[in-house]
Design a protein around this nucleic acid. Structure first.
Lengths: 228, 228
DNA sequence: CGGCTAATTGAGAGACGTCAAATTTGGTGG
DNA sequence: CCACCAAATTTGACGTCTCTCAATTAGCCG
């Protein structure tokens, strides 16, 4: 797993650092961090294990999950290409959640220790991480509102709108998540998700084919997303 | 509101900076930021308004809230003394949530612009904020699990355990939140909270007197918090 | 074409929300 | 210090959304 012939970060500098200055880019480049390939459903790190590395997702999708003492899975967040994740190690000894690949994924693994030794560039990297953290915190705020104050139809509708927000209305958008995973993300059951999908397909609000979805009636979906 | 005779930050350096070096402390001191006094239920900033300042809570409690399009309130987080909050302005133009004092509160207001002009110390402040952000993100992870995967009794039980975690079992801990606010924090109704309180008081799991609570049977409460 | 998993669909139960009324609490002024 | 009022909390009865359990169907891979 560790030694594979995938290109190292240098040859495909992660999006995450796109805002960094020249010297920082060079410093990162110098780390010669290898990128790793994960198949679907592989564990990248587990909650409670030593948080030695920070990760950047080059390609594919990752889910960050937590499991309740009662054994229920909750998907905290879906990581998209270009994003950094797993930075608990900058503050704590252990990861606070688990990371699992949704499908084949290509990630850069950067040891926390090498970030600490970046010298001049360290502060810029910390600034980038601070910025990313603030954004993620805003996203977490939004999700807390979803889970705390909305019904299942509203949650699913806003999820679909958000998921397809980068896709033209007449295009198909790959739905990387299974029904179960959507359920675990939204804090509902798989049956509830399935029933809403079925209903909305009948009502021609959305379409689905071959793991891809399309929003056919965005207005109606937006109405559902925000109507008690 | 702006001009009040409360001491400025300098005379009571906020806890948040306690980890900072000498020079940074001096630089912050130099900002001569005034502290502000808020009565209960006053707005400190509103979601969607220009995020010009960062705040540090010296004394009292603040709730960060969001309101859904359907009009439901969700408490995102309760800010405790020594914590920084409202740092959206470091990244975005607008606040992503609203901040309201729970009771009388004393806060330091620091313009984002003055943080930008800290010179040498800027990077250390950014690092402190990064650290705080990562911690808050971990806390948000935990709350997403609560709201997404747990029943009302489990949510309330873990909230009480968390709220009282700094208090000896035989001491009374002031409960700053009303029933309504607890409900808005946990994503349930006020009636549900009230019923659980009543039941647990009957069963001598908790006690309550004059806005303060006490956990009488921590084991039982922990069991409830983690048992489906 | 079988065999396996994922997804759908139905029926029934239960947790929680909603609505309404009763009770307590806290604050105010006499 | 007490009476009084408004707001907060409690309690009950009822409805409903969502979960649970179970059976069926669809989709996919060898």
């Amino acid at each position: 797993m560790d030694q594979d012939k995938s290109p190292r970060c240098g040859s495909q500098m992660p999006d995450f650092f796109s805002g960094a200055g020249k010297e920082t880019l060079a410093a990162i480049e110098n780390l010669k961090v290898n990128s790793l390939l994960y198949a679907a459903e592989e564990s990248i790190y587990a909650a409670g294990s030593p948080a030695r590395d920070v990760y950047i997702l080059n390609e594919g999708y990752i889910k960050l999950i937590k499991i309740s003492t009662a054994g229920k899975n909750q998907i905290i967040r879906v990581v998209k290409p270009g994003e950094i994740f797993g930075f608990d190690g900058l503050v704590d000894a252990l990861y606070n959640h688990s990371a699992v690949s949704l499908r084949q994924a290509n990630v850069c693994r950067i040891p926390v220790s090498s970030l600490e030794n970046l010298g001049e560039s360290k502060t810029e990297v910390e600034r980038l991480i601070m910025v990313k953290c603030i954004r993620e915190l805003q996203h977490a705020d939004d999700r807390l509102l979803e889970l705390g104050a909305k019904r299942s139809a509203e949650r699913l509708a806003s999820f679909l709108l958000d998921w397809c927000s980068d896709t033209p209305l007449d295009k198909w958008k790959p739905l990387v998540l299974s029904r179960l995973e959507i359920a675990q993300l939204l804090g509902v059951t798989i049956e509830t998700v399935s029933r809403l999908f079925a209903q909305w397909k009948r009502e021609a609000i959305i379409g689905e084919q071959k793991q891809s979805i399309q929003i056919k009636d965005a207005d109606k979906l937006r109405f559902i997303a925000s109507s008690n």
